[in-house]
């Protein structure tokens, strides 16, 4: 029954992909990344994991002027987006719909007698977002507001970013919202406390109680070497990310860590094959299980 429903969800997701893809080809600035992986879950289930990142600028959505506020040493730009991770069997699942923006501060300089931001001196970005996060069963739904800080570092005089910061990104965030519950407790997927590491990958393992307010601090670290070395026509690189959440209200910690050996098949780095490992599902389930898999990602 669950497997049939999960397969149906995958079909729905694929239909959405085709729809988004068709729209993207017609109108937009390539806003879509799709990844399909075969994975092995904690229950040794062979499953399919499907990931979708979709973001487009407001001007391409509505064919009107985008929201960009330009001040003397700062700017603010607003963009909607969708992130979906789902799959068959007990693959991790999360769906996030967000209206996001960045506030950015910088120094300026003149290039060709035109004033422009001088990113080489370093700059600060402050991402903010309003949205919802749920899983592919839609049995919980969190409304969430997020504000964060992502610094971008200076470059040295010869143009290269100071190592190791060239490929590392750091982000700090505060998240607050409300968790809604749409099913009776008897139908909810829960996980015994003493089997946290071997529980169904779809289970909600957070300490956040249904129908209550949420307050989290989040720290993220990301490394992406992109095309590090080239072997024949294939580029090889490493990609990794670690996200930690501190549940302030319940004094609990959650995490998601992922690492991948990445093989690029195009000079533009928009088609790549990953051999990847992920520990922890992240929001909203904060499932502590793990997945190992391989698959292809294409950015349209």
């Amino acid at each position: 029954m669950n497997q049939k429903r999960n397969i149906n969800i995958c079909w729905i997701a694929l239909c959405l992909i085709l729809n988004f893809s068709a729209v993207a080809q017609e109108q937009d600035d390539t806003p879509l990344d799709i990844s399909i992986k075969t994975i092995l879950t904690d229950f040794q289930n062979e499953a399919i994991s499907l990931g979708i990142d979709y973001a487009r600028s407001l001007d391409s959505l509505f064919q009107t002027k985008d929201i960009l506020l330009a001040q003397d040493k700062s700017l603010f730009q607003l963009t909607p987006g969708i992130h979906v991770q789902t799959g068959t069997e007990d693959a991790f699942s999360s769906i996030q719909l967000k209206l996001s923006g960045i506030f950015m501060t910088f120094k300026t300089t003149y290039v060709g007698n035109q004033v422009t931001p001088d990113l080489n001196k370093g700059f600060q970005t402050f991402p903010i977002s309003l949205g919802i996060e749920t899983n592919n069963r839609f049995n919980t739904l969190n409304t969430l507001a997020e504000a964060g800080w992502v610094p971008w570092f200076k470059k040295n005089p010869n143009g290269n970013m100071l190592n190791p910061f060239r490929t590392i990104r750091l982000g700090l965030f505060v998240q607050s919202g409300y968790k809604f519950n749409f099913v009776k407790d008897s139908l909810a997927i829960t996980c015994p406390k003493d089997t946290l590491n071997l529980c169904d990958g779809e289970a909600d393992e957070s300490h956040e109680a249904p129908n209550s307010f949420l307050l989290r601090a989040k720290g993220s670290l990301k490394i992406d070497t992109q095309n590090l070395i080239t072997v024949g026509n294939v580029g090889l690189g490493l990609s990794g990310a670690a996200h930690g959440w501190y549940d302030i209200k319940n004094n609990a910690w959650y995490y998601r860590a992922q690492a991948a050996l990445r093989m690029y098949f195009s000079r533009q780095n928009n088609k790549y094959f990953d051999i990847a490992y992920q520990k922890g599902s992240g929001a909203p389930n904060f499932n502590a299980g793990s997945q190992f898999g391989m698959g292809l990602t294409v950015a349209f």
């Binding site: 700017l75 960045i102 950015m104 990113l119 991402p127 992502v150 982000g171 990301k222």
Partner: peptide
């Protein structure tokens, strides 16, 4: 779009700074 967090990435920052300019 993959080198940052959310919209704090090189593609969107570049577009924003060119529009600001």
């Amino acid at each position: 779009r993959q080198d940052g967090f959310g919209y704090a990435n090189s593609k969107y920052i570049y577009r924003a700074v060119i529009r600001w300019t």
